[in-house]
């Protein structure tokens, strides 16, 4: 598997770290941050293959972060991964341009399948 650069944005630090570790084990190269602004800063200096974004962030709401990400780097696919999502959130995010909307707890195989899909599309 290719080494994908991923950005995980989630204020649940232990979850984010753990997810990063697991994805790293599967050959990804994950960067982790715990707030929206931090994520936007990171994205200004680096391109990612995929961003995994939580909705309930301490500084900015996930959908706002998504909107800004789309301005900075419209082609980067963003997957929303949240524990608190509502149908309205889902619709809004899909409208802004999220690649997918996933509910915690995550099944890693599904995420890997999406990664593979994006990989195929990217080729």
């Amino acid at each position: 598997m290719k080494q994908y650069d991923l950005l995980i944005v989630d204020d649940e630090r232990r979850f984010a770290d753990m997810l990063a570790k697991r994805l790293n084990l599967r050959g990804c190269n994950c960067e982790v941050c715990y707030s929206g602004r931090e994520a936007l800063n990171i994205m200004e200096r680096k391109n990612f293959f995929l961003v995994i974004l939580d909705l309930h962030l301490p500084d900015l709401y996930g959908s706002e972060v998504l909107r800004r990400i789309k301005k900075v780097s419209a082609e980067t696919p963003v997957i929303i991964l949240t524990a608190h999502g509502t149908e309205k959130d889902r619709q809004e995010c899909m409208k802004i341009g999220a690649f997918d909307f996933m509910q915690k707890p995550l099944v890693i195989e599904k995420l890997m399948a999406i990664l593979a899909q994006i990989g195929e599309m990217a080729e």
Binding site: E12, F15, M18, K21, R22, L25, A83, K104, P105, I108
Partner: peptide, 16 residues
């Protein structure tokens, strides 16, 4: 969901 996600990820990591 949050603690559940953490349990899931942790267990998954242990398995990994």
């Amino acid at each position: 969901n949050n603690p559940l996600a953490l349990i899931g990820e942790t267990a998954g990591y242990v398995k990994d």
